[in-house]
Amino acid sequence: MTQNVNHEEIAKFEKVASQWWELDGEFKPLHQINPLRRQFIIQHVETLFEKNILDVGCGGGILAESLAQLGATVTGIDMGEEPLNVAKLHALESGIKVDYQKITAEEMAQLHANQFDVVTCMEMLEHVPNPQSIVQACSKLVKPGGFVFFSTLNKTIKSYLLAILAAEKILKLVPDGTHDHQQFIRPSQLIGWAEHYNLKCIDAAGIHYNPITENHKLIDSLDVNYILCCQKV
């Protein structure tokens, strides 16, 4: 089976992995929006305590660890060796237990169908060749009635201006080439895929991030960065 992996994308993240937990480094925006993402998850899931959660595309573990912090049993998967090493090391330092594995979402779904209360897939779909296949895998992994959260970047002119032109080229907040606008996904498209795989979209919010003021909040507009909450039928 050909893995649903873009090796150039993996290489990009391998290179900057050591920066992952630097609060003022390349991943600063991610650290700043993480509380918003977690808050959105909590609003729907109620408590994270003893919930079995899978974080698909966990990278250096920013979200995974913050979920485990609140008492969830978390598994984080990624195909980047270095980010996973960074994640494991950080978990050792913080004393928070997360099970990190190098495996694709599709392979994970073969092994652990219907096992998770919650599956999260944040800022990941725009980095794989076949995002639809990830949506399918997430649906397979979650228990019936369980929740899947997707966040990604919308394919709008505004998202090009903000996420690529401003963030990468002008302000250099994130490394040049972090994102490819062609890979961005419209909410309608993502919701369509989700529903095709028995995931009913029950809520959506925009994640607003102003790189200059560093102001960040959840908003109604899905123009740029957005997060969906889906429930498996």
């Binding site: 808050q39 909590i42 609003q43 109620e46 408590t47 609140l70």
Partner: peptide, 11 residues
């Protein structure tokens, strides 16, 4: 003790 309310308080 419902967690989503505690989280909303923290927020």
């Amino acid at each position: 003790g419902g967690f989503s309310n505690l989280a909303a308080y923290a927020e």
